[in-house]
């Protein structure tokens, strides 16, 4: 089996940066959205839930196509940034945020629904402000939801292919990630290198899921 080349290593680096950025953005934006979905009685809730879940069923090329158009120089996001975001790392992060959204939002929403408002009300009655109560009571009780969200969001972003190809192209060092690198290797019949990266991703994904299931078992949610 051939060793990984510099190009492969830089793709690994891009992949890790992309996944980390995507998960961070989704945690910050997704927490309030998941909280809203868990507790709202609004009639818009099913519509928002459907939009959040869309990337699960949509062909990545469809999602990638629309994001590409939006990011381009004449698209709304491209105009906002006053330049084309297509085929850039930033553009890739934006695309990944949409693509991995359900994998972060849904575990958080589930955890918030399981925890309910009761512990928060108790915390407020003990003089904790809303932010304080969120940090010291809700987040720890919903910890399992956060771990699932982080792990699934990270792993899913690492594994994306169609959207990355549509939006990012495969520019080494900028938008070439592991999954597209495998494709490139296969295109030129470098099966050994494709195998090395594939095996790495297979092992990584398995270990990540194993960790989630073990953590779930070790730290179940106790709702009193």
């Amino acid at each position: 089996m051939d060793a990984l080349t510099d190009v492969d290593l830089s793709a690994l680096w891009v992949s890790l940066r992309l996944a980390t950025m995507t998960v961070l953005v989704l945690l910050i934006m997704g927490t309030p959205l998941a909280w809203w979905l868990a507790h709202t009685r609004s009639r818009f809730r099913p519509i928002v839930e459907a939009i959040v879940a869309l990337p699960i069923v949509l062909p990545p090329t469809v999602l990638g196509f629309y994001i590409l158009v939006a990011l381009g120089p004449y698209g709304p996001l491209g105009r906002l940034a006053n330049l084309s975001l297509a085929f850039t790392f930033t553009g890739l992060v934006i695309a990944s945020v949409f693509y991995s959204m359900p994998f972060v939002i849904q575990p958080l929403q589930g955890a918030f629904e399981a925890v309910g408002e009761a512990p928060l009300e108790a915390a407020w009655s003990l003089r904790a402000s809303k932010f304080d109560a969120f940090l010291t009571v809700l987040s720890p009780i919903a910890l399992r939801g956060y771990i699932s969200a982080i792990v699934l969001g990270f792993a899913h972003t690492l594994g994306e292919f169609g959207v990355v190809l549509m939006v990012g192209g495969s520019i080494p060092g900028e938008t070439r990630v592991l999954s597209t690198t495998i494709f490139e290797h296969v295109e030129v019949m470098e099966y050994g290198q494709a195998h090395a990266i594939s095996a790495f991703m297979l092992a990584f994904s398995f270990l990540v899921l194993l960790a989630v299931f073990i953590l779930n078992r070790r730290f179940p949610i106790h709702v009193s």
């Binding site: 009761a118 512990p119 009300e121 407020w124 009655s125 003089r127 809303k130 009780i141 709702v223 009193s224």
Partner: peptide, 29 residues
Amino acid sequence: PLYERPIGYVFQEPRLFPHYNVRSNLLYG
């Protein structure tokens, strides 16, 4: 808001915080 009212509230269910022990629950407020 509730967190600025000098009220003690005991709910029907104890609503203790499961990630703290008894002492930390008592000292929370």
